[in-house]
């Protein structure tokens, strides 16, 4: 499993091609990007804050859980932080498995868990000002 937290951009295809995963018959990637609008406001940038020591640990737990549950052969998660302009890439999740169903399900499980468990916070910057994006709570803590 590869987890990277970085401020710089990534090339999703190059990152995936760099890994030679033996036995994989399917590869599914998700790329999240910065929206240019939110509730009819124009968004010019997104500021992403995180809890560095916990983020890596939590992404590893999320990846390992999906790997075991969906029989994934490899997991790659790259998440950016800092100030990103609209349309910039935020996150890459790529998974490899023997068959497509496991790859689709595993990738979705990781992306869903990022939303509720990974300690990131986003502030939307618009001409009207800056607003924190409402977050979510881990399902098992509700």
């Amino acid at each position: 499993m590869i987890i990277r937290l970085q401020t710089e951009d990534f090339d999703a295809e190059r990152e995936a091609q760099a890994l030679d995963v033996k036995g994989a018959g399917a590869r599914v990637s998700f790329v999240g990007t910065v929206r240019d609008t939110a509730q009819d406001r124009t968004i010019t940038a997104l500021e992403i804050e995180h809890y560095p020591e916990m983020t890596h640990a939590e992404l590893s737990r999320i990846g390992a859980s999906a790997q075991a549950r969906h029989n994934l052969q490899e997991v790659l998660i790259i998440h950016r932080y800092g100030r990103l302009a609209c349309h910039e890439r935020i996150v890459l999740v790529t998974v490899w498995s023997a068959h497509r169903a496991e790859a689709f399900a595993g990738c979705q499980a990781i992306v869903d868990a990022l939303k509720t468990r990974a300690p990131f916070w986003k502030k939307e910057i618009s001409p009207e000002g800056a607003l924190w994006v409402p977050g979510q709570t881990p399902q098992d803590l509700k």
Partner: peptide, 26 residues
């Protein structure tokens, strides 16, 4: 100590406890 907990969880000497709003990764 970098794992999700709750307000009723116990904090021991030497621990790191963090408080934050709901998260929005991805």
């Amino acid at each position: 100590n970098c794992e999700h907990a709750s307000l009723t969880s116990l904090v021991h000497d030497g621990d790191e406890v963090a408080f934050f709003p709901p998260v929005s990764g991805g």
